[in-house]
Amino acid sequence: MSEPSVNNPLIEVRHIHKSFKTVQAVRDVSFTISQGQFVALLGPNGAGKTTTVEMIEGIQKPDQGEIRIMGLNWKEHADRLRPLIGLSLQETRFVDKLNVVETLRLFASFYSLPASRVEEIITTVGLQEKRKAAVENLSGGQRQRLALGIALLNYPNILLLDEPTTGLDPNARREIWNILLQLKKNGRTSLILTTHYMEEAEKLCDYIIIFHNGEILKEGSRNALLDEGDGRKIVEFELEKNETAESYSALRQKFDQLAALFRVHWDRELSKGSVALTNLETELPLFLEHMKELGLTICNLSFRKKTLDDLFTELTGRHLDD
């Protein structure tokens, strides 16, 4: 009989596949997560993040492949796995008519937890003033904090959060981040979080797995991904208005020519583009010269650090939040 043990990796996902009628939602995904890690599954809508976490949560079954959590699997050990896990689904709406304390008490009873734990959680997620407020009267951010509180009730070893801040305003998002950063300090919990906000992945997680079309596009530590290869810098440019009037295909052609030489990305709608350069001093003049030769006049130029979105754009030609 297998025991949950520190020798096993926390979570092992091996070659999982999952299809729905016409869509292959997840294709041959494998990764390993170790104890205490904070991991982001980053990718645009429809990339397969939810399907993947729900398979880890035992809510969906993979068509093929295997998932082990501390050496245990859902088929044989569901009853032992459930108490180890805390989770929030992409959209859960709790009972409208119950208030915050009642909702937490109900869930606490499923884990045989005392009322004192409910009070601790209310403090952890900062809902003291809303304890008696009915769920239907909570704001989006407060609902998400309630969902997070429920996920944290049972002192989970593994916390799985599916898009915990989607649709929230920046303040509400930061409140959730702070709760999670606090949790990270305590160091007892591992986190898997899905998101399409690169800031969220960058801010909270040390290890990032980028999903695209049901597959893992790239994975690695945050720093490794951002330094990816050569530590390129990103230069953003804007074209003169009259240039944008030029027919699309002519512009396209010019950028295709440029793309042969540079890692350039052009956004037609914004008439903005970016290029990734390794050495600004030598490469930037060269790039500007090429632009000039092609008759493209730059009206604005700026530099910034590379982000995960840049990486995603480089790899797929799309943005994360497209």
Binding site: I59, I85, L87, T92, R93, F94, F110, N154
Partner: peptide, 13 residues
Amino acid sequence: SKKLIRRMVATPM
């Protein structure tokens, strides 16, 4: 439809 059932059965309820 609110996904509440699936949330509840994800606990030891």
